[in-house]
Design a protein around this nucleic acid. Structure first.
Lengths: 252, 252
DNA sequence: GCATGGTCAATCATAAATAATCAAAAACAG
DNA sequence: CTGTTTTTGATTATTTATGATTGACCATGC
């Protein structure tokens, strides 16, 4: 088999399986370990695959895996709940919508379930933008300083440019929801961006699993009376009185 | 058999089988290896097939010249050259620099070699931003519409926000460099962003391997007299007279 | 501590592919 | 028919790809 032909096959296999070991490739392509290793080195150098210990992974999945600890750990918590919340939220997007997607893990999950490619999307998350593009959505990104470790775009430039847009729908994550404090987050700059985005949106959806209720963080970015909350378990009655709450069953 | 006739047959065979070895062709066309090789060289030069070690592959699977090649496919061309160019360019970044990094594959490679985390960076490439962040650099991103398939951020928002910045250094990729046409790219929107970025930069470096010289694309974004060109092979003398050219040896 | 199993880069010899060169054969113009 | 050009096949040295081997490295378990 031609070298180039084999390498193309490796790229296909890696992209399809997302992750593959050297041993699997030697088996599939009937080559020696040394050859496969050389191929992986070459393909990695050409930025066509991501070489890891023991094999290779596709570039897409690697982008997600390079996330810093904090985000990874966060994502592990309440996966089931976040999944159904995201799945439901995605159904709310219609054609012609101009959608703002906030940075954060819940909203990142939301993008996985988005099927509408007729709507237009704008986000302040680097990874969110990349994911939307990969799905074939018409995507814009806000400009500004990138904050580590959440990889959210923040700062005066960001706030200024949001003000020019008018969203039909905004999907926001939050660190806490409380009656008086409203929606809160620990970072001042992120809070500012969120609050301006909400101001520019016709409808705002807050995606929050049940653990977020009662939590209060440093800065408030939204009053709960002005948002629709999408969650997985019915919260205390006082929340239902003050805000519009949609409860999504776990097996939605 | 006529030479031309045989060559046409080779093209058909290659296109049909997608990949074929020299040995197979000698068998099928009843010619010597030397003849087949000569044919492959000629057909490759005429851009009718893709010559690889051991045989040939069809063009359609690897590169379509009609549209802009996707980022992935571009990345595998001239790896060594791009490597040494990027490596050198990275050494030009000092503390206190405010650096603009253009979207594109060469500049993406550049980021791999960046060691200075004291400088501040701003880019219009999604992947570029992510990579800079992962390296621990203070990074900003321009806002605007994201263009597929290059994943560059473009549009009026983008142009407007660049104008507020003043870069000490700008690193730009290009599709072509010519004496009269200057630096050119096939996309109008990308060209606009590039030209504004250059205007806001104190020094502009154009990263271009030797294959880019003499190429002209649809839109000009820079005059070569106003940029420093970093390349891998000494170009024609007329370029040296009109612009500042730094030639980086292959094993830099 | 030591051994073990797995991965990996470096090295080597072998095999294959290639470019360069040359001479013979074919096509062609005068 | 003669001299020239083109094409071809064979031969050569050079380059490239490959598989096997070695020792290094690291985590795991004894």
């Amino acid at each position: 088999m031609l070298t180039e032909e084999r390498r193309k096959q490796i790229v296909s296999i890696v992209n399809e399986k997302k992750a593959v070991t050297v041993a699997e490739l030697t088996e599939l392509l009937d080559s020696s370990e040394a050859t496969i290793r050389r191929d992986l080195n070459a393909l990695s150098k050409a930025s066509l695959i991501n070489k890891v210990f023991g094999g290779a992974t596709s570039l897409d999945s690697s982008n997600i895996k390079t996330t810093e600890e904090s985000m990874q750990e966060k994502a592990r918590i309440n996966i089931e709940e976040k999944d159904s919340i995201s799945k439901y939220a995605a159904t709310l997007i219609n054609d012609q919508d101009f959608v703002f997607i906030d940075s954060g893990t819940t909203t990142l999950k939301l993008i996985d379930y988005i099927t509408n490619t007729n709507a237009k999307y704008i986000t302040n998350g680097i990874r969110h933008a990349k994911k939307l593009i990969d799905k074939g959505c018409e995507t814009s990104i806000l400009g500004g300083r990138i904050k580590t470790p959440t990889e959210a775009i923040i700062g005066p430039d960001c706030v200024e440019s949001i003000s020019k847009y008018h969203f039909t729908k905004a999907f926001m994550g939050t660190n806490g929801i409380a009656i008086d404090a409203g929606c809160t987050t620990p970072d001042v700059d992120e809070a500012l961006v969120k609050s301006v985005a909400i101001k520019q949106a016709y409808i705002t959806y807050i995606l929050a699993d049940h653990t977020k209720f009662g939590q209060v963080n440093a800065v408030t970015f939204a009053d709960i009376s002005k948002c629709c909350i999408i969650t997985d378990k019915e919260p205390a009655k006082r929340y239902l009185e003050k805000s519009i709450v949609k409860v999504v069953s776990n097996n939605f």
